[in-house]
Simulated assay, not measured.
Amino acid sequence: MQIDLSGKSAIVTGSTAGIGFAIAQGLAEAGAEVTLTGRTQERVDSAVQTLKADVTGAKVSGVAADLGSTEGCQALIAARADTDILINNVGIFGPQDFFEIDDDTWEQFFQVNVMSGVRLSRHYAQGMKARGWGRIQFLSSESGLNIPAEMVHYGMTKSAVQSISRGLAKVLAGTGVTVNAVLPGPTRSEGVVNMIAQMAEQEGVSQEEMEARFVKENRPSSIIGRLATPEEVAHMCVYAASPQASATTGAPLRVEGGIVDSMA
Rank of each mutant, 00 (worst) to 15 (best):
N113L: 05
S262D: 15
W133Q: 14
V215T: 09
D4Q: 11
L86M: 03
K216G: 03
E211P: 10
G191E: 08
I77C: 11
V182Y: 02
E211L: 13
V193D: 10
V34A: 04
C73R: 00
Q108G: 07
T56A: 14
F214M: 04
E201K: 11
G134R: 01
L227I: 01
V114G: 02
A149G: 15
C73L: 07
T248M: 14
R213S: 11
G167Q: 11
S15Y: 09
M128E: 08
T157M: 04
I3P: 01
M151H: 06
D45G: 05
D97G: 05
G38F: 06
A64S: 15
I224T: 13
R213W: 08
L168V: 07
G20E: 11
W106P: 09
E29F: 02
F98Q: 02
G117R: 13
A10Q: 02
I3T: 10
M210W: 05
S189V: 11
G38P: 04
F98K: 01
G225Y: 09
V34G: 02
V193H: 01
I11A: 12
R80S: 02
L51P: 07
R135E: 06
E29S: 15
G62N: 00
V12W: 03
W106C: 10
R122P: 08
G127C: 06
A240N: 10
V114W: 02
I11Y: 04
G72W: 06
I136S: 03
I136V: 12
Q137A: 13
G167Y: 05
A81H: 14
A10D: 01
E208L: 07
M151S: 14
D45A: 14
I3A: 06
G176R: 13
M115T: 04
L67Q: 09
T229Y: 05
I11H: 05
E100W: 05
N194R: 12
F93K: 04
A30L: 09
M128S: 03
D66C: 07
Q49D: 15
A10G: 01
S246F: 08
T16N: 09
T40L: 02
S121W: 03
A28M: 10
A149H: 13
R219W: 14
S206H: 04
K59Y: 01
Y124T: 11
V193G: 01
R254V: 15
L36N: 01
M156K: 05
Q25Y: 04
M236E: 03
G176C: 13
P243M: 12
G38I: 06
T83I: 01
V161L: 11
F99P: 02
E203Q: 14
H235E: 10
F93C: 04
T187A: 07
V114T: 06
S140I: 01
L36P: 00
R219G: 00
V233M: 08
W106Q: 10
E150Y: 12
V48A: 03
Y124S: 08
A79P: 06
G185I: 11
T249E: 00
V179W: 01
F99Q: 14
N180I: 12
M195A: 15
P184E: 06
T157A: 04
G117P: 11
